[in-house]
């Protein structure tokens, strides 16, 4: 599998990363190298082997259903570029 310039543009758009046309070729080569490496890995015969999701042999940790965080609105909103009262304000989102 090999990526085209269009593929790279699409991936960049999905990730909301702005790239210049000049960068396209470099990124395409780098991404293709990564894909090539993964393709190399998939040559290993893994039939009947369960996929490993983690190297730690523990179960998912959990917490109890009790409120541990009370109002943090000052902290939460501290870095907001714009706010109105306790709301974040963002450029109008049109559906």
């Amino acid at each position: 599998m090999s990526l085209s310039h269009d593929d790279v543009e699409k991936i960049a758009h999905l990730a909301r990363i702005k790239i210049d046309d000049a960068e396209l070729e470099t990124l395409r080569t780098e991404l293709n190298n990564i894909i090539g490496w993964v393709e190399q890995l998939s040559k290993v015969d893994t039939d009947g082997i369960e996929p490993m999701t983690s190297v730690v042999g523990t179960n998912l940790g959990h917490r109890n259903d009790s409120v541990s965080e009370v109002n943090l609105s000052d902290k939460i909103l501290a870095n907001a570029p714009d706010r109105v009262g306790d709301f974040y304000a963002v450029p109008k989102v049109v559906e």
Binding site: I76, V84, D86, Y88, A89, V90, P91, K92, V93
Partner: peptide, 15 residues
């Protein structure tokens, strides 16, 4: 939750 009708240019966000 997004609120779109409080301001002509901005949407308000409540998390």
């Amino acid at each position: 939750k997004s609120i779109h009708d409080h301001d002509p240019k901005r949407s308000f966000i409540d998390l």
